[in-house]
Simulated scan of single mutants.
Amino acid sequence: MVKNMPGMRQEIGGYFSFELNQREKTSFHSNGIYLNSGRNALEYILLSLPRISKLWIPYFTCDVILEPLLKLGILYNFYHINERLEICEDIQLESDEYLLVTNYYGIKDKYIQELSSQYSSKLIVDNAQALFAEPIKWVKSIYSPRKYIGIPDGGIAYIKDGIDVHQFDIDVSYDRCSHLLKRIDLGAGEGYMDFKENSYKLQGQPIKRMSRLTQNLFQAVNFDQIRNIRRDNFRLLHGSLSQTNKLPIPDLDSFSCPMVYPYYTDDCTLKKRLIENKVFIATYWPNVFEWCSSASLEYNLASRVIAIPVDQRYVLNDMKTVLSIIK
């Protein structure tokens, strides 16, 4: 935990800051490298590699993945996935090539473990949607905590023998928090444009270490509680929707903690109905509509998977309300 600025004496007196309950003994991602965004966690890993000639990436991913690749001039190839959200091609990596695989919706932990046996140190795991997935020894991975909790930015990288992180400045995040504050005071709708603007500010940012503000917010979180709530909410939804969900959902014991409940449906009106009832549904990912044809699986996943919130803000009765809208 960062308590005061390097080279500065601890200030005494004056106005108060937020009272954040710092969990000194937490082990949650304590061995990770704390950076200022998920995309910069990927850039940090790429910079740490002795050599990379090409990175294989899925069509079904967020376009921010391209930002560090374009910045560093690294070639990339796309690959397709199947309805199990698994690679459907036989990718044979050449020398100095690496494979980026996504832990979709935080439910593909077991599959990622299986891939690690095949690709080992050539594998880079995108755990942006899987904050609770355990890092795998010798496997490089990135995390984006703001997909799970209310923080303005931040990313975590895992790589053996990464470059010295202390060469990078510490970021400053206070000016990217307006959406978090407005949501508390004014509601989600009033803060939405701030959320978009603050997310946009993350584009093109140089690698920096995670800000003190983001670190303090991160370390104040009860992650055990969050994991339990998310799993309970997911379990309830799956119990009611499994028969109509076109997406094969792995056994709940095979993954640590979901980001959302992914409901793959042919009901083209459902997303609109949910939003009209103030159940806000994100689209993962709009860029896929430009990258893929309308006949592709990836296009259909982006347009027809309803990412139902299951997070720690909601209880089982909230999930029952969502189910009443769906049915």
Score class of each variant (00 low, 15 high):
Phe218Leu: 14
Phe218Lys: 06
Gln219Ile: 10
Gln219Tyr: 12
Gln219Arg: 12
Gln219Lys: 12
Ala220Asn: 14
Ala220Tyr: 07
Ala220Thr: 09
Ala220Pro: 04
Ala220Gly: 15
Val221Met: 04
Val221Pro: 02
Val221Ala: 05
Asn222Tyr: 04
Asn222Gln: 09
Phe223Gln: 02
Phe223Pro: 07
Asp224Val: 13
Asp224Ala: 14
Gln225Ser: 11
Gln225His: 12
Gln225Thr: 10
Gln225Asp: 13
Asn228Ser: 15
Arg230Ser: 08
Asn233Asp: 14
Phe234Ala: 02
Phe234Tyr: 15
Arg235Pro: 06
Arg235Tyr: 09
Arg235Asn: 12
Leu236Tyr: 08
Leu236Cys: 05
Leu237Val: 02
His238Leu: 05
Gly239Glu: 10
Gly239Asn: 15
Gly239Thr: 11
Ser240Met: 12
Ser242Pro: 03
Ser242Ile: 10
Asn245Trp: 03
Asn245Pro: 00
Lys246Gln: 11
Lys246Tyr: 07
Pro248Gly: 02
Pro248Arg: 00
Ile249Ser: 02
Ile249Thr: 01
Pro250Glu: 00
Pro250Gln: 06
Asp251Tyr: 08
Leu252Asp: 14
Leu252Trp: 09
Leu252Ala: 11
Asp253Gln: 14
Asp253Tyr: 11
Phe255Ile: 03
Ser256Pro: 04
Ser256Val: 11
Cys257Ser: 05
Cys257Ile: 03
Met259Leu: 15
Val260Ile: 12
Val260Met: 09
Val260His: 09
Tyr261Glu: 01
Tyr261Ser: 06
Pro262Lys: 00
Pro262His: 04
Tyr263Trp: 10
Tyr264Val: 09
Tyr264Ser: 00
Tyr264Lys: 05
Tyr264His: 09
Thr265Tyr: 00
Thr265Arg: 01
Thr265Leu: 01
Asp266Phe: 05
Asp266Met: 07
Asp267Asn: 15
Cys268Gln: 14
Cys268Lys: 15
Thr269Gln: 15
Thr269Cys: 11
Thr269Asp: 14
Leu270Trp: 01
Leu270Gly: 03
Leu270Phe: 03
Leu270Cys: 06
Leu270Thr: 07
Lys271Asn: 06
Arg273Ala: 07
Arg273Leu: 10
Arg273Trp: 01
Arg273Thr: 08
Arg273Ser: 15
Leu274Ile: 08
Leu274Asp: 02
Leu274Gln: 07
Leu274Trp: 04
Ile275Thr: 08
Ile275Ala: 01
Ile275Ser: 06
Asn277Lys: 11
Val279Arg: 01
Val279Trp: 05
Ile281Thr: 05
Ile281Cys: 02
Ala282Met: 11
Ala282Arg: 11
